[in-house]
Write a protein that binds this DNA or RNA. Structure first.
Lengths: 182, 182
DNA sequence: CTCGTGTGAGACAAGAATGTCTCACACGAG
DNA sequence: CTCGTGTGAGACATTCTTGTCTCACACGAG
């Protein structure tokens, strides 16, 4: 009978992404529980958002670990990264849009994630895989943006969720231009 | 002595992008006016957000007009599009993150914008400029995502605003991979 | 069955945000 | 100068949200 904390957090992220001013009552109903129960698990709105942040960070770190970013070519690493991120894309999209979190502490965790992702692009540039006129910081931000866009578009039914990895990696790595070679 | 409506809307967008739960009082102070004056110009929070949406749509339509999307190659059209969008990127980023707008009416205006942008990608695919395994819908969404990412990153000082057009168009069209040719 | 745990529903007060109002004041036009 | 307009500051009631509490009930373990 215990509430599924993970399910609550995912529902909250999905709802708050669409409607950032949603009340605790709306969050509770979206998760299929009562406001009282939501309050039993999260002291308040702040606590909920902070839990959302911590949960998102933990999931992303796990995804980065699973992606083994240091192995193989940088391109393959990006592929694995996007594939591992897909399950938590909704969470990441919410957190990425919630810029206020980055200001009041907790930014260290995000910096660490940023650094790990950016290092893949650095590696790709150093070994000649990636072009050097686009900074690793920008490529990292762009990855976030594409993941969030794809998550939102999929949630809205505008794109097929099954193409998540393909759409993001192909665009991020290869761009929209048609290539004669390869 | 009249309040600069455009300035108020831009301030509001910039603030609400960072802190979506900001109070009317905070919005007013961010714009350098009193809450009373803000209320004289926008009946309430809903009215403010709706005005923000209408203003954003109008600016984007103007940007699309100025970009002359039907002329020249599709690549050049995308370049012009991004360049014209830059001044309203902050506004667009806010509206893109505020998905709740798309649900309760007004979605028609956005659909029209979507269609105009997507048609550029359709044209590019038809004349062989763009690859056909990435749908125009996705490319449109990706463009939004990249514009929003770049606007946020620039606002946070993580990337140089002057590279706005270059970073977005190069990544969107060419991707991150290094190319031997050309 | 009986008990303990966890939940839903709802009441309640405290607090915050909103919307409206009044008043004083600065400014420009005449 | 005098007037009209638009603004800032603040008071005020209303509404919404929040946080806490109580009570009844469903469920599983024993």
């Amino acid at each position: 009978m215990a509430v599924d904390r993970d399910h609550v957090l995912r529902s909250a992220a999905a709802l708050l992404t669409r409607k950032s001013t949603a009340t605790m009552d709306e969050v509770a109903r979206a998760a299929g529980i009562s406001r009282a129960t939501l309050h039993r698990h999260f002291a308040g709105r702040d606590a909920l958002v902070r839990a959302l942040e911590e949960h998102g960070i933990a999931e992303c770190e796990a995804a980065l670990d699973a992606a083994r970013l240091d192995e193989g070519s940088a391109s393959d690493a990006v592929h694995r990264l996007v594939r591992e991120i897909e399950p938590v894309a909704g969470l990441l999209a919410f957190l990425y849009g919630e810029n206020e979190l980055w200001e009041d502490g907790g930014g260290d965790s995000w910096s660490r994630l940023d650094l790990r992702i950016a290092s893949v692009f650095v590696r790709g540039q150093q070994n000649g895989e990636f072009r050097i006129d686009l900074s690793p910081v920008w490529l990292t931000e762009a990855l976030y943006g594409l993941v969030a866009s794809c998550a939102w578009a999929a949630q809205a039914g505008r794109v097929a969720p099954k193409d998540f990895t393909h759409m993001i990696t192909e665009l991020l790595l290869g761009g929209a231009l048609r290539r004669e070679e390869s």
